[in-house]
Amino acid sequence: MKVGFIQCAVISAVFAVAGYLVFSSASLNTSLPLTVSASLLLSGILTPWLASLFNSSTSVSDKDNASAASDVTTLYVGNLPYKANEDAVKEYFKDFLPVHSVRLMKDRRTGKRKGYGFIEVETDDVDGTIAKLNDSIFLERTLKVRPAKDKVTDQE
């Protein structure tokens, strides 16, 4: 159930009226500015709190549903042509499956491409995708496609 800002404002208004009644009945000599400021304070606190409460719970479930619908997998792609850029690689792979991102590795010193990179693709069948793309020809080069390994960091 998705609750919007208007529903939260209505709930806050109800609390503000209740606050007005509580403050006005608490003492017979209640001044109007105190009552109005107290009801505004209640509505100002409750409206953002209720909105964040309802919106955060619905957005978490929406993210879970989106991630469950499609898996993003990172693949290693080797033997890439040195002249290929990220856009060319993305164009080639998007003919086979949806591509989220492409990262081609470069030499830090020279800035030249190293001939391999990583692509994030949307697939439920990793093995089938690799079988389809491995040994395919891209710009006169035979690509080597494997599942990407997790980056290992030295922790000593």
Rank of each mutant, 00 (worst) to 15 (best):
A69S: 07
T129N: 02
D135R: 14
E120K: 06
A13R: 01
E120Q: 04
S59L: 11
G115L: 12
K114F: 06
D135L: 12
D150R: 14
T73I: 14
S12G: 14
G111K: 11
G115E: 11
V72Y: 00
S56E: 12
E122S: 01
P98M: 02
S25A: 11
V126P: 04
L53G: 06
V89W: 08
S57Y: 10
L21V: 13
P81W: 11
E122R: 00
I11W: 05
S61M: 07
A51V: 12
L50P: 01
S31N: 04
S56L: 12
S27F: 06
C8H: 05
V14Q: 01
K114M: 12
D64A: 03
S43G: 13
E91C: 08
G19M: 14
A26W: 14
D127K: 10
G128R: 14
D71Q: 07
S12D: 02
L21F: 11
S57G: 07
K114D: 04
P33Y: 08
N79K: 07
V10G: 02
S43E: 07
T30L: 09
D62H: 02
S52D: 11
C8V: 08
G115H: 12
A38G: 09
V22T: 14
K63D: 06
K94A: 09
D71V: 06
L80V: 13
K112D: 13
S136I: 15
E122F: 00
L42Y: 01
V89L: 15
S24G: 08
F96C: 03
A68Y: 00
F54K: 01
S43P: 04
A38W: 09
S56W: 09
D125M: 08
V60S: 07
P98I: 07
D154R: 08
S101K: 03
D64M: 02
L50N: 02
D124N: 12
L28C: 03
S52M: 13
V10S: 04
A18S: 13
V145K: 09
S56V: 10
V126R: 13
E122C: 00
L32I: 15
L53R: 09
A51T: 15
V121N: 00
P33E: 04
A66V: 04
P98W: 02
Y92R: 08
T74E: 09
F54T: 04
L21Q: 10
T30S: 13
S56F: 09
A68T: 04
V152R: 05
A9C: 09
P147N: 02
D62A: 03
S136V: 15
P33D: 05
V102Q: 04
K149F: 08
Y82L: 15
S57W: 11
E122K: 02
R109P: 00
K149G: 11
N29D: 14
L97R: 10
E140A: 13
G4H: 01
K83V: 14
L50C: 02
F118V: 03
N65H: 01
G19C: 15
F96S: 11
A38H: 03
G4Q: 00
V89C: 10
L97K: 10
T142R: 15
S56N: 14
F5Q: 05
N85Q: 13
K112N: 13
S31R: 03
A38I: 13
T123K: 03
D154Y: 10
S59F: 07
E122V: 01
G128D: 12
N79P: 01
A51L: 08
K94S: 15
L41Y: 03
S101M: 01
F93L: 10
R141E: 15
L75G: 03
S37F: 10
A131R: 15
